Simulated scan of single mutants.
Amino acid sequence: MNKLEATRKLEALSRQGRTVFLLRDLQKIFPEDSPHALKAGLLRLVDEEILCRPIKGVYVNIFSPKDSYLLEHVVKALRRGEYTYVSLESALSAYGIISQIPVDRLTVMTTGRSGEYKTPWGTIELTHTSRSILNILDATVETQSPLKQATPATAIRDLRRAGRNTHLLDIKEE
């Protein structure tokens, strides 16, 4: 891949709202490249600051317009095919049930595996849930963000099930 061709393709995808890519997405975008050539080309694009690699296997187009939900877009890419929703401290803070605002951390429940990922924009904390898909759909709400959000009762229940610290809960809100 050459830099001009890659920039054109990424710019076209940016106009469609695509900002975050997995390695397998980029293999489809640049099908003419062998796996070795693709990795070398991606390394060049990262070095030239056209792409950013916040997590191994995840790439962000630097020139795409960013919204305040970039971490959530990264989560959607990381756990594609799994059910994920904002919960725990992030959701409770949004509802005003805890007074602390997690500035540099996004807490998410997922049917995929747990993990913690540090990115230039903050830390993503994924906690596994074995709840059924129907239960998850009933216990979450749509918001303006790319991910669903737990209802207040669900976020409190998730906090307790995950064995997290509950001393920040405002009891009268609960």
Rank of each mutant, 00 (worst) to 15 (best):
E82S: 14
F63L: 12
V103S: 10
I101C: 06
S99T: 14
A91V: 04
V86I: 15
L88W: 01
A94R: 01
I97H: 10
G57Y: 03
L70D: 04
E89M: 10
S90I: 01
Y83M: 07
Y59E: 03
I98K: 03
L71Q: 04
I98A: 10
N61T: 00
Y95A: 12
A94W: 04
A94K: 02
A77Q: 13
T111V: 05
V74E: 05
T111N: 05
S90V: 01
P102T: 11
N61Y: 11
S90K: 00
L51C: 10
Y95W: 12
T110K: 13
S87K: 10
E89V: 03
V86C: 03
Y85M: 07
S64W: 03
C52A: 13
T84I: 09
S99L: 11
I62H: 03
V60Q: 00
L106T: 07
R80H: 12
V75M: 04
Y69H: 12
L51W: 02
E89D: 12
V103G: 02
A91Q: 02
T107C: 14
H73Q: 06
P65Y: 03
R105H: 11
N61E: 03
Y59A: 06
T84V: 14
M109G: 00
V74T: 00
A77S: 09
P54C: 04
T107M: 13
V103Y: 10
D104Y: 06
K66E: 10
H73W: 11
V58Y: 07
N61D: 07
T111D: 13
R105T: 10
Y59F: 10
I101P: 00
N61G: 01
T84Q: 08
I97C: 07
Y83T: 15
